[in-house]
């Protein structure tokens, strides 16, 4: 199973399937599907990012959404100042990476539970700061983002345009993760998770590599945030509450920590099912989605802690 999931053939099949989604939506006259696809894609990006810190290195990060917010708001503010869109996107990534690196340098000597709490605290600080700095961010009222239609030649519908952009980003992100996984850096990261002391005594500069994973994850968050801002054309602090961070953590846990395929599947389920249910079932159901999601978290942890599609290593770790 693992070999099938990791083969290049599978990758291209999935890319093709993803590209077909807008066509399918058109045929079944369900344009909302494209929106859902976009949202799922954004969460896939975010989860792929968190996979570096939580999945590979095992750092319990509960404030990742803050960097999504930083990416989104950087883009919004840049666009407001007439920065061309692609540059705004690049800026989003750079600022997010810088902020993440700064945080990492400060807090990465903490472990386990402490790290979880501090990252959660920082997530809240970020949200509250965005909320309170009215002059810069327009506070709780939110900011409009200037329009950008990059793929207008491909499709009229901006949802489709951004869906394709996001899908491309996810494909790139998954490929990048795969390549890093199977390299000296990837091995070092997993070694740190398995036994930090042994890793250090094998010559790995643990602190530096944790910071590296931390920073790499920010690239994904910043990119996702920028795309989000440009697509929705509106950002508000309410999109970046603590529960979004737990959603991303849940996706990584549900899917299988350190498993790219698992993380993607997890995002498909946890970020895709609720809006689909909302659209197709009665409105009562959507209120149950968080309840369901909490239950899933508990049940999966209890009965299948290795996740849905565990990386082969993780499976071995938890089955022993």
């Amino acid at each position: 199973m693992t070999r099938l999931l990791r083969s290049r053939w599978t990758f291209w099949v999935l890319v093709a399937a993803a590209l077909c989604l807008p066509l399918v939506a058109n045929i079944v006259e369900f344009p909302y599907l494209v929106r859902v696809g976009g949202v799922v894609g954004l969460f896939m990006l975010l989860s792929l990012g968190l996979n570096f810190t939580l999945g590979y290195v095992g750092l319990f990060d509960l404030g990742f959404i803050a960097f999504y917010a930083i990416g989104a708001y950087t883009t919004a503010i840049a666009m407001k100042h007439h920065v061309p869109a692609p540059v705004a996107l690049l800026l989003a990534v750079l600022v997010t990476v810088a902020a993440r690196a700064a945080l990492g340098v400060t807090i990465l000597r903490l472990r386990g539970d402490y790290l979880a709490i501090v990252t959660m605290g920082f997530g809240e600080i970020a949200r509250l700061t965005i909320n309170n700095l009215d002059a810069l961010t327009n506070g709780p009222k939110g900011m409009q983002v200037r329009s950008w239609r990059p793929l207008a030649f491909l499709a009229k519908d901006p949802n489709v345009q951004f869906y394709l952009l996001i899908a491309a980003a996810v494909a790139l992100g998954a490929a990048a993760s795969r390549r890093l996984e199977d390299s000296r850096v990837g091995r070092a990261w997993v070694a740190i998770r398995e036994d930090e002391v042994a890793a250090r005594l094998s010559g790995i500069p643990v602190q530096r590599y944790m910071l590296l994973a931390f920073t790499v994850s920010a690239v994904f968050a910043g990119l996702a945030g920028g795309l989000f801002a440009m697509w929705e054309q509106f950002v508000t602090p309410e999109s970046f509450v603590f529960w979004e961070s737990t959603l991303i953590v849940s996706i990584v846990v549900l899917g299988g920590m350190g498993s790219i395929a698992g993380v993607l599947l997890g995002a498909l389920i946890l970020a895709g099912l609720p809006p689909l249910m909302q659209a197709t079932l009665s409105t009562e159901w959507i209120n149950y989605r968080y309840l369901l999601f909490g239950l899933i978290l508990v049940l999966v942890t209890l009965f299948r802690p290795q996740g849905l599609l565990p990386s082969s290593r993780r499976e071995a770790e938890l089955n022993s």
Partner: peptide
């Protein structure tokens, strides 16, 4: 160490 923490988050959400 991580599993009970995640379960706790789940319980909290529920």
């Amino acid at each position: 160490r991580l599993a009970p923490l995640i379960s706790a988050i789940g319980v909290s959400i529920v």
